[in-house]
Design a protein around this nucleic acid. Structure first.
Lengths: 203, 203
DNA sequence: GAGGCCATGTAAACCGTTACATGATTAG
DNA sequence: CTAATCATGTAACGGTTTACATGGCCTC
């Protein structure tokens, strides 16, 4: 079984759902297209890790509601205890930032500004989700604890990247001022740094 | 040409190097194994995007030192100006955090603690690299500007994730206190939040 | 002497995306 | 009437990993 399989088990352990719904939940956890999900669900069902119930619907297509089996829960449980593999990030933006010295500053600034607006959008969407999570999410024993802390994780990381983007824009605008402030990196967060820059700029 | 090809061009535009060295540089930009790099370099050479020079060495195997051609620089330049695709992150850790309510708290804590030590290690290694970057890196026109800002990006994001990890550990230890502090999320960084928790714990 | 670094390649297996296929309902 | 949402599947293609292949040098 591959990692996607365990991601599916993780979602199904929290709540039974169809392959279609699964795709939406997996987006933040381990993104996958339906063409990958449906065949895998069939394989997992044959192995006895999940079970499905045919649900007839009116006004919309019938669906299969999958749920995790005891065997599946056991498999997931022992997998969770193993050390996770190193994360793999593939982000074209990084390559473009790396190579942006080849283009003019206008294009470089556009690249960063568009990243900021994308990040801001993701944060606002996610904030609504966080607000709608159940009340007792903060207990580690809660089913929703994992989802709750992961949503927060994505948000703080995105916000930190926004701060970083602003720092880069500042560097492009006036490298001299920032050279002076650079010593602060590591002493605090970038938010602090940005505040420092703004203060200097205002002087 | 695929994204890896542009990542290779990006590195070669900065400095000519062998396929072997390329693999090391690509690790942060667009991770790839040598089995993917060498055949692609051959293809790119045939297309005239890169050129190589056979370098004989004593005491170690000969190598091919690749450099970017004018055609390659042009191709990279126009690719950089296109909008980047959405980033794809695949991180088993997220699935394990999501599913950690299935295991005991001891295991859950181990998962987070080991993440923290991995992140800390990465930060210290990177800090040395940042220190060794040339002096005039802070100018956007510098060849090393991209590498410089990306190293900083990874570091601030890793540090923010460390803060998040500590926040999760705090949540697991005493959910009640954190419930009280939770309102602060969004108002500042997690560092601030952690400070808030510590202060409450100390009271 | 075992393992890691340097250095380049190929082949097979696996994972993931895009395209092909179908079709009803609802909102703008 | 167009597009989105719900709902499930298969096939082909392309990208990525793992394994096969070779071999000298250096460090523990």
């Amino acid at each position: 079984m591959n990692t996607l399989g365990y991601a599916i088990l993780g979602v199904l352990a929290r709540t039974p759902c169809s392959g279609y719904e699964l795709a939406a939940y997996l987006e933040v956890l381990w993104p996958a297209k339906h063409s990958q999900i449906y065949p895998l669900l069939n394989k997992m069902e044959q192995k006895g890790l999940v079970a499905y119930e045919h649900v007839e619907q009116t006004g919309r297509p019938d669906k299969k509601t999958y749920s995790i089996t005891d065997q599946g829960r056991e498999a997931l449980g022992s997998w969770v205890e193993e050390k996770p593999a190193d994360p793999a990030v593939r982000d074209e933006f990084l390559i473009k930032v790396y190579s942006m010295w080849l283009t003019d500053e206008e294009n470089a600034r556009k690249l960063i500004l568009e990243r900021i607006s994308k990040l801001k959008l993701r944060v606002t969407v996610r904030e609504k989700k966080i607000a709608s999570v159940e009340k007792d999410h903060t207990r580690a024993s809660s089913k929703h604890f994992g989802r709750y802390v992961l949503l927060n994780r994505s948000n703080v990381l995105d916000k930190e990247e926004i701060s970083w983007c602003k720092w880069v824009l500042n560097l492009m605008d006036n490298p001299l001022i920032v050279k002076f402030v650079i010593g602060f990196i590591g002493a605090g967060t970038f938010n602090t740094l940005i505040r420092g820059i703004s203060m200097l700029s205002e002087c």
